[in-house]
Amino acid sequence: MPAKLTGRPLIEVRQLKHIYRSGGEALKGIALTIDAGEMIAVVGRNGAGKTTLTKHFNGLLRPTTGTVLLDGQDTAKLPVAQLARTVGYVFQNPDHQIFHERLFDEIAFGPRNLGLRGDELTTRVDSALKAVDLTDYRDRDPGELSRGQRKRAALASVLAMETAVIILDEPTSGQDYQESEQIMAILQELNRRGHTIIFITHDMELVQEHACRVLLIDDGKLVIDSPPRELFRQEQALTSAGLRLPPTAELEQRLAAFGIHSDAGTVEALAASIARRSSQITARDSFKENCSGGAAACQ
């Protein structure tokens, strides 16, 4: 990716403010940079400005003041259709984009707009369909799909464009556990292959498991920009932004008060450290009973 070679960030946001014409100031001065190959979660309460921020990355929204550079170029000066070659955006509601009578054509819409035809197009579409597990529905009407499936269809239609950056607005909302895991696995795989992934979510467990960096947005401001583990140490900031620690992180913190330390963030690691600790306690207690004349003598 050229951004890596030149050493400049892929996305650079400078003093970004956005004021909606029929509303208030949705972004109040945001600065950040994103490098190629990052996997970033954007979190924050409803109305915080997450969608507004990410829509600036591909020019769907233009800054009221400030600049957004994509690979060094000012997004305000380029048409969205051109920015779409680099940045794909999966909307929250799949019904805002689905309009073909055949799923294949729906997925092929983006790549066709990029000028792909023939075998290359077919290959792209089929592999995108396969990635989201919708191959069986290839020639069916997308209207017949369930909402979860339509959501994955929308994802596939952006995957097929193979853009360097993929932004997803709440990709797992309305998906069951298995579907969510599947979607996140796809994103992780894309990230491993060098794509920059930016996803908005309300699910802190997803953040914990899948993101390398979190942007916490509150009231139009970037409050925290850090790896998930560091964010979870700032419980105060999280709560005041209307969010809650994921259960394992919370449990880790409560257990730390009892001298049980673990920071792997997984249920397995926690269980292991609790087990280790309790076997220590049992061992010590039996030691006390045997050698010091019972528990009462210790106090």
Partner: peptide
């Protein structure tokens, strides 16, 4: 609002 969002969703797929 719907018109705006749909327009954006299609533009994001490089529709002109």
């Amino acid at each position: 609002e719907e018109v705006r969002l749909i327009g954006q969703a299609q533009e994001a797929r490089a529709h002109d």
